[in-house]
Amino acid sequence: MKKLKETKISGISLPLYAFFVAVIIVVTLLGKLPLDMVGLTLLLVTLGHLLYFIGEKLPIMNSYLGGGSVFTLIGATLLSFFHIVPSNVIGAVSNFMGGKFGFLDFYIAALICGSILGMNRNLLVKASKKFIPIALITMVIGFFSVGLVGMLIGNGFADSVMYVSMPMMSGGMGAGITPLSQIYAAGLAHGNQAAIFSQLAPAVTFGNILAIIGALSIAKVFNKSKYNGHGTLVAATKEELAKPKIKLDAQQIGTGMLFAFALLMAGDILNKFFPNIHQYAFMIIIVFILKATNTVPKDLILSIIMCK
């Protein structure tokens, strides 16, 4: 009993978390869950952290199958597949994340800016020299491998590349297949973004699960190998790894958010002239150039890190 009282999920005591879950279950069963920012934020954050917590505690899952990260993906998929979460709620979540509400744009803009600008400049340049060539080589190999296997099983090279290889390489749902499905819909004669998204989703979900499990397996097998960096991609000094000291300030957070959103809009402007390249890609390029050229003042960088 004492252990249960001491248990916390994302820093929240178990009784309080149980209250959150109970409220969500009751309000959903009554059909009264607000399908707006308040209701959907409570639903997504509470269920997401709960599934992650369970995945981290399951014996085999936490050691060999990716732990909380994979269990969250599997759990969310099962909740949707078995209609445990009502279809109208799932539709509202889709709109909230990537539809008319565009929460993902809000989140991704801050994430991209904060992550890249918050890195040490020297470390970023060193990592890029090693990472970019390997990333390009693996993408090319993956592209043609999936296409050739697709041909062998009768699925076709182009179809396999478009609906399996590309979504897997895109990374995920938000900044991955959401813009990718938009690009496909705009380029195809009778493209339907929602229908294309549903075709891309299984590949990216299954691909991410296998990637996490595969990376974990390789790390365990080569645990004592000299080639195992144990999470360190490139050798770095203490100065390069040091994180800036941050004191939260509401005004600075607001400034950082405005700057991040302005860079996303800059990506939208470039996308207007080069529609085949998504605005997220342009934004990443812009932020990378700003960081590499040391253009952004230190105070502004701290503001952007705060809003991440």
Rank of each mutant, 00 (worst) to 15 (best):
K57W: 03
T41K: 02
I116R: 00
L33Y: 13
G114M: 06
A92F: 10
S69G: 04
T72D: 02
N120C: 06
F81K: 15
L123M: 13
P59D: 07
S87N: 13
L43C: 06
S80P: 00
K57Q: 14
P34C: 14
K126G: 01
L33P: 00
N122D: 15
L35I: 06
L58W: 09
F53H: 14
L58M: 15
A110D: 01
N62S: 15
F53K: 07
I74Y: 01
L42V: 10
V38S: 13
F82A: 05
L40A: 09
I74T: 04
P34M: 13
L47E: 07
P86I: 02
L111M: 09
N122V: 03
V93D: 02
R121I: 04
L78W: 01
A92V: 05
I84F: 14
F96A: 12
L44F: 05
L35P: 00
G48A: 10
L124V: 00
F96T: 03
L43P: 07
I60D: 08
F101N: 11
G99N: 11
L117S: 01
F82C: 08
T77H: 04
G48R: 12
F53E: 05
G68R: 01
G55W: 00
I112M: 12
L104M: 11
T46R: 08
F82W: 12
M119K: 03
L43T: 13
L42Q: 11
L40T: 03
A76K: 00
L79D: 01
P86W: 11
K32S: 13
D105H: 13
S115F: 10
F96Y: 15
F101Q: 10
G99M: 05
A110G: 04
L65T: 06
S80H: 05
T41V: 06
V89A: 07
L117M: 02
L123D: 08
L104S: 12
L73E: 04
F103G: 02
A76Y: 02
S87G: 06
K32F: 03
P34K: 15
M61N: 13
L104A: 11
H49Q: 13
L124A: 14
I90D: 02
I112W: 03
N120A: 09
I90P: 01
H49A: 12
F101D: 11
A76T: 09
L51D: 02
G67N: 04
I60E: 10
S87V: 11
I60H: 13
L73Q: 06
D36P: 09
E56L: 01
G75I: 13
L117V: 03
V45E: 03
G114Q: 06
M119C: 04
N88E: 15
I108F: 10
